[in-house]
Design a protein around this nucleic acid. Sequence first.
DNA 1: AGAACTTACGATGTACGTAACGATT
DNA 2: AATCGTTACGTACATCGTAAGTTCT
Lengths: 317, 317
Amino acid sequence: MRAMNFQQLRSVREAQRRGFNLTEVANALHTSQPGISRQIRELEDELGVEIFVRAGKRLTGLTPAGARVLPWVERLLLDADNLQRASEDFRVGDAGVLSIAATHSQARYAMPTAVRDFRAQHPKVQLQLHQGSPAQIAQMLLNGSADVGIASLALADEPEIVALPCYRWTHSVIAPPGHPLLDGELTLARLAEHPVITYDNGYTGRDSIDHAFAKAGLQPTVVLTAMDADVIKTYVELGLGVGIIAAIAYDETRDAHLHAIDARHLFAVNTTSVGVRRGALLRAFAYDFITVFAPHLARDAVQQAQATPSGTPPVPL
Amino acid sequence: MRAMNFQQLRSVREAQRRGFNLTEVANALHTSQPGISRQIRELEDELGVEIFVRAGKRLTGLTPAGARVLPWVERLLLDADNLQRASEDFRVGDAGVLSIAATHSQARYAMPTAVRDFRAQHPKVQLQLHQGSPAQIAQMLLNGSADVGIASLALADEPEIVALPCYRWTHSVIAPPGHPLLDGELTLARLAEHPVITYDNGYTGRDSIDHAFAKAGLQPTVVLTAMDADVIKTYVELGLGVGIIAAIAYDETRDAHLHAIDARHLFAVNTTSVGVRRGALLRAFAYDFITVFAPHLARDAVQQAQATPSGTPPVPL
DNA sequence: AGAACTTACGATGTACGTAACGATT
DNA sequence: AATCGTTACGTACATCGTAAGTTCT
């Protein structure tokens, strides 16, 4: 009696993730390519169903059966991880690794106090802080390389990720001392007369900036974009233009050589969210971190949200 | 690199189900007892956590870690079944076995037309009809020996079972021709003057019968109880008393030698539910059966309900 | 003494990597 | 010709059942 095993499941999952290239899968799983080939065949035999479409000898895609079956493979492997993590809480108690993926803005301006408090509470937990775009953060959550993601609402696009709103923030305009924008009322029209430096597409509320200008029928000259406010500030100091950054990124004492004007009346309010993979169990301290970062998100609330709330069973049909 | 495997998981699950008696587990899983012992040890080693409490050599209970870990073991095995079933739909198409557990009343009076229609739609599906008490039905759903359960709302007690209301029904009183109860208005007080024959505790709305009498401060003489209306009718015919049965169980032509009086004004309305295990994927035809039985329960609606709606993540804390 | 779990051991079978082969681009 | 997947094969290791050993009731 030969039964399904986890190595087979991993092979199949990885084959899909790596675009059906078994050689690549073998490298990723640190084993030989013929081994992978066999594992996949064996699972297909076991289930009595072809999972992959084979064009001659190459794998080129998923069969309908494969598409139906794969979500369950993912779920099974996710649950296997959950089982491991559930026992880790007992095995090593309050020690371990917490991997957080965040955008630069969050890591630099929103998270420091939470990280400090968390470290005090859990000195034995090693923190890994990964930076990336919201899309990269989502990817890290999905493949398990990050436990917690912190970014703007963009995470909510992915159905397998639960995004929990943490706090709301607005933009500020920054300019060098003496800049004409600093006098008088700040309007979109006046702002659009100057060269603008702001965030890259997809980052930190860039959408709401674009949207506001578009809605007003204005086309500002964006002379430079960057992933983070520090870079933007640098170029604003150099006189390349005025900056539009998250209000939280301006510090009156540290950034004394720049002036900030509240711009909350110009651009839509933004929301920062904590993202976690749906259905994934986190270590106890990971839930603690979330609570430290956003006090209204207690463990129960997060788990409730993760449990699979909206109609998203692994199998759509 | 030795990894977790399903046999270990099965051993652990079965050990809990069978009250920590490994010899019994070994029989249930058709293997040797030392094998089970090893499987359990291996999983504990793998997870680095003791799952079972050992008093000397015997297993006596779950450790706190075990209690935390076991729901994930269950989930993993459930998902493994789901994976199998998902592929079965492709492997054998519209063939297979559908196991339905129902109370006698449901099987005898509510299900026949649904079964007939279902058989016409799915001639290649073998139907297994199991009878049992609501508690037994719940048990069968939980251990996978039934796919679909049909019973009164009692199924809803178990959080791992989703009970979907199907239809509502009321009771009738039956009596032999010429019985004094047949003349005049039927009241609880008059009913309580006669010996009563009705369902066993826990069956088919027995609760609502008891409750109605208790609320009226009456204590009827229940001279005989049975699991099903056929037995009750037999003894009512013999003149042992008047019967209280589900209205649906009285057929005017077949039961011509008995008279029925509508008793819906005396006892609370009852609800019959279809129960399925939460988180379990069913074969496509199983969803079809549910829809045939209760047309408002389409596949999507059932799956939605199964997905884990109310806050019941596998791990409570 | 008996029931229940563990340890020990030997046979069977499974898993995996290397190497050779076949097919596709 | 190069890339990619399959087949073949031998070794190493894992699994499982039997039998003996140990501990608790």
